[in-house]
């Protein structure tokens, strides 16, 4: 009896699985596919028939965006802010995580808890005082007014990811290094950092993508149009050229592309890095 029923049941449950998977997948992809294809239409075509492949394919929206100096300025602004944030986070978080992972001292767990709580404290709740503080420091209308707070809000996550990684590096290595006459700082620099390259690149990718996606902080701080990052630019285009849907969609899609490429390259890495930090600890 079992021999006859099991394959049938298996086929059935498989089918159900695939149907659910495809349904969820479709739901996830609808707005993205719509935006990509919409960029290849004219606004008239979108109004007439927004579903299906464009006919004929129109390239002017994408090409026009790629030729626009405003777009490239925003790409540069986003890149600069993302890189500067990452370059500040890497040394600050790795030093702190190193101290938290390798040394015993009173209050260590309390400090670690402090970082974990910082992880949960969102930019939104701090928006208004942050804005006031940045205004007092004369950092409004200055890219560093975005970079410096971003580093502060990014540090906790980086430390929480890095500490378990540093911890898993065997003590024997440190002993060997010490016997060879290597001080703690040299151990950190010559042994820990090279061995932690996977974790460090996870952090870099997360920071870059996070910064690339940031909306609220740039919206508050970057008052001058030539300082805008891509999300601000797209938001502005979307309100300003509200009638030219196709152009807005093309601009939006092109703004997503850089983060997407970075992510596609590092996907395996991020997922394993995040989950090993989250599950093993």
């Amino acid at each position: 009896m079992a021999v006859a029923t099991i394959p049938v049941r298996r086929v059935l449950s498989r089918t159900v699985l695939y149907v659910v998977a495809l349904a969820v997948l479709a739901l996830i992809l609808v707005p993205l596919v719509y935006a990509v294809l919409g960029g290849f239409r004219t606004t008239g075509q979108i109004a007439e028939r927004p579903v299906g492949l464009p006919d004929p394919w129109i390239f002017t929206n994408y090409l026009g965006t790629l030729r626009s100096p405003a777009f490239w300025r925003q790409v540069w602004n986003s890149t600069f802010i993302a890189l500067a944030t990452t370059l500040l986070i890497l040394p600050l978080s790795s030093l702190a995580a190193f101290a938290l992972a390798r040394y015993r001292f009173r209050g260590r767990e309390a400090i670690y808890t402090f970082f974990t709580i910082g992880l949960l404290y969102p930019v939104v709740a701090a928006t208004l005082p942050l804005w006031l503080t940045l205004r007092d420091l004369d950092l409004l209308g200055n890219p560093w007014g975005v970079i410096l707070p971003q580093v502060a809000f990014g540090l906790p996550l980086s430390i929480v990811i890095l500490r378990p990684f540093f911890r898993n590096i065997p003590d024997d290595l440190e002993d060997a290094a010490i016997i060879d006459g290597c001080g703690p700082l040299r151990f950190y620099w010559h042994v820990m950092l090279p061995l932690s390259r996977p974790a460090l690149s996870t952090i870099s990718v997360l920071t870059i993508v996070g910064s690339w996606n940031a909306f609220l902080l740039p919206l508050l701080v970057l008052t001058r149009q030539d300082q805008w990052t891509l999300p601000l630019g797209v938001n502005n285009i979307s309100t300003q050229y509200g009638t030219d849907t196709a152009l807005v969609l093309a601009y939006t899609v092109l703004s997503i592309v850089p983060a997407l490429i970075l992510y596609a390259i590092a996907e395996r890495h991020i997922v394993s890095g995040v989950t090993s930090g989250a599950v093993k600890g």
Binding site: P31, N213, L230, P231, V234, T252, S255, I256, A259, Y263
Partner: peptide, 10 residues
């Protein structure tokens, strides 16, 4: 990975 703001515009 898609920026929230950009995805929301889509």
């Amino acid at each position: 990975t898609t920026p929230v703001s950009l995805a929301t515009i889509s």
